[in-house]
């Protein structure tokens, strides 16, 4: 199968089943991009996610565009982005035209009682995989716990935490380099 077409279809699938924004996309991306197609490894996905959050725009679009770019260059980026946007676009146009009352229907409410449960679990599983691969030293444990507490209990933007992590990483590199030079 053509790479661009594969990207489009994969992201179309991801867009169709992402309930609840950017974070809910991670388990699907890991399954499709890492495990099924072997296009990237787990750490690369986390790095892309870090970049996605550090630039403006919707995280889901940023992530799709970056993954598409990595796999298929500029055309790949466009295919992935169009793929992730198209299901949303079609579903919303259909709802806006025919079913404006859908959000108030008992059936939809009941279906979401279930979907919410699955989405929470899937995001926890994704977080668990990320913790296993990235939280190893004392400093990374502190960064992880600090992030969870700050995001849960304050309204400080995550972007500052990402910048802090980057600064610590840069500092660590410089210190090691200086030690190595001595």
């Amino acid at each position: 199968m053509n790479k661009y077409w594969a990207l489009f279809i994969t992201f179309f699938k991801i867009g169709s089943f992402t309930f609840g924004g950017g974070y809910a996309m991670i388990p699907l991306i890991e399954k499709e991009i890492v495990e099924k197609n072997n296009w990237m490894d787990h750490d690369e996905i986390i790095d892309i996610f870090a970049v996605s959050q550090s630039i403006p725009g919707a995280i889901a679009i940023n992530t799709s565009t970056l993954v598409g770019y990595k796999i298929g260059g500029r055309i790949g980026a466009l295919c992935a982005t169009l793929g992730v946007i198209l299901p949303s676009f079609c579903i919303i146009v259909i709802i806006a035209t025919f079913f404006l009352k859908i959000s108030e229907s008992k059936e939809v409410e009941a279906v979401f009682l279930g979907i919410n449960g699955a989405v929470i679990l899937l995001i926890f599983f994704a977080a668990r995989r990320m913790i296993i691969s990235s939280v190893k030293s004392n400093l990374t444990i502190i960064l992880f716990i600090m992030t969870v507490l700050i995001v849960t209990f304050t309204s400080i933007s995550p972007i500052y935490l990402i910048i802090l992590g980057g600064l610590i990483g840069a500092l660590n590199y410089l210190v090691k380099k200086r030690k190595g030079a001595k």
Partner: peptide, 19 residues
């Protein structure tokens, strides 16, 4: 090195979003 220390923060963000 920069991303090594950003990754635990992303893991924290994902965990917090699940919460």
């Amino acid at each position: 090195s920069i991303f090594k220390y950003i990754r635990p923060i992303i893991a924290g963000l994902v965990f917090a979003s699940a919460i």
